[in-house]
Design a protein around this nucleic acid. Structure first.
Length: 411
DNA sequence: TATGCCGGGGG
DNA sequence: CCCCCGGCATA
């Protein structure tokens, strides 16, 4: 490609650029040298590429909506449905008696839920077994494997997620993608999950709705700041988030054959039906049922939920969902399921699944640690190579030239 | 297949 | 340290 230059060709300006100062040493290889030299050049060059920051500023509402949707849920991401509810609504505390692990409050803050970059892909059904007291030893039993049908079927052991480790891994990866990243602001007010795309917006929301101040924008004493948080997410992830939500999916199935009746669940006592034995962790095993679960419908489901959520803060969820949720949490008594509201709505949008991934670990051990992904998952945005192309290799940032992580277009 | 980049190697 | 590349993981 770029080899020609010098020859008889009169024209061939292109290379002239190099010529600019580097030299006249005629020989071919000079090219290579050139490359190295012109780090200078690179600096000047990249300018045009101003950060893509701006573009994100305005997004059309549609997207925004999408985002919202996912967001509202996101906080929950990390935690099993159960405690989430607690976090948001705080409502069901009283029932707590039943639940062994009520204490989980901490996570509730919602601060966590760090989502990690790699669009998880790993599929929502994270590995971790239900932390419930009655550990799952029973399941995994072959008997169930094949069985799909029974009431048990829908159970999804899946979602849970170990809480203990929850905050272990935050951003193992230094640089994150930033490509289609969108920053949103989420109201942290109890029972309110409002998410807006602008800080001003959220502040106003808080000021007026929660703090009850009518003065508009100006007289902010800054108090609002404490009630909202900034969250980032990239639109892409949202998309896949929807498509592959985990917890939701099981629920999808459940409605039809709801073993535990939807609403009436209250009457039902835990004892009535055995603890969900079915919890077969993730599908890898024979697990007949689950595989189906994840599929398009889930997305719809999610959205639906979300709307409900948005409509009013404390919406109660269609029990069906709650079922699944409760089941997931195992020890959790089905009874109260009805009681807690919104909370769980959404599944982990993105957060590294870890699970399968680490080599050393067997599925079981997965629970505890989230190793950062093996490698780095690969940055999302375009890097020097893509941007400038091979032919302009000299324009790449040094890191790219050395085949190291790009420094110019970090993500 | 193309791309991103880690790990390692040579100077 | 600078410069590269083999090779893997991923898209």
């Amino acid at each position: 490609k770029q080899d020609m230059h010098f020859g008889p060709e009169p024209g061939e300006e292109q290379r002239s650029t190099d010529g600019k100062r580097v030299s006249r040493d005629s020989d071919t290889r000079s090219v290579s040298l050139l490359e190295q030299k012109r780090k200078v050049v690179s600096s000047s060059i990249d300018v045009p590429h101003a950060r893509r920051s701006e573009e994100e500023v305005d997004m059309d509402k549609v997207t925004a909506a999408m985002v919202l949707t996912s967001l509202s849920t996101s906080p929950l991401v990390r935690s099993p449905p159960v405690r989430v509810s607690e976090g948001l609504s705080g409502s069901w505390k009283d029932n707590g008696s039943a639940g062994p692990f009520t204490p989980s409050s901490n996570s509730s803050s919602g601060g966590y839920w760090s989502w990690s970059a790699p669009s998880d892909q790993s599929n929502p059904s994270t590995p971790s077994p239900p932390l419930s007291a009655d550990s799952f030893k029973p399941f995994r039993v072959p008997s169930l494997g094949g069985v799909g049908p029974g009431p048990a079927g829908p159970e999804d052991p899946v979602l849970d997620e170990q809480d203990g480790s929850s905050l272990l891994f935050d951003e193992p990866i230094p640089r994150k993608r930033k490509n289609s990243m969108k920053v949103m602001f989420k109201c942290l007010w109890k029972n309110c999950g409002k998410v807006l795309s602008t800080a001003a917006g959220i502040q106003r929301h808080i000021r007026t709705i929660h703090l009850g101040r009518n003065c508009d924008s100006d007289c902010s004493d800054g108090e609002e700041d404490f009630y909202y948080t900034e969250i980032k997410l990239n639109t892409d992830s949202v998309a896949d988030g929807l498509s592959s939500l985990s917890p939701a999916s099981p629920s999808v199935l459940s409605p039809p054959p709801p073993p535990p009746s939807p609403l009436p669940s209250v009457s039902q006592l835990p004892d009535s039906h055995k603890p969900m034995q079915s919890s077969d962790i993730k599908e890898p095993h024979a697990g007949g049922t689950t595989p189906l679960s994840r599929s398009a419908p889930s997305a719809l489901y999610l959205i639906h939920t979300d709307h409900a959520y948005q409509a009013t803060a404390p919406v109660s969820i269609p029990s069906s969902s709650s079922n699944s949720a409760s089941s997931a949490s195992t020890s959790f008594t089905p009874t109260n399921s009805s009681s807690f509201s919104i909370s769980w709505q959404s599944p982990p949008v993105t957060f590294t699944g870890t699970t399968v991934r680490n080599p050393g670990c067997t599925p079981t051990c997965v629970v505890g640690l989230h190793l950062s992904s093996s490698r780095k998952v690969r940055g999302e945005g375009k890097k020097c190579r893509k941007v400038y192309g091979m032919e302009n290799r000299d324009m790449w940032c040094t890191a790219c030239r050395w085949k190291k992580a790009c420094q110019r277009f970090t993500d």
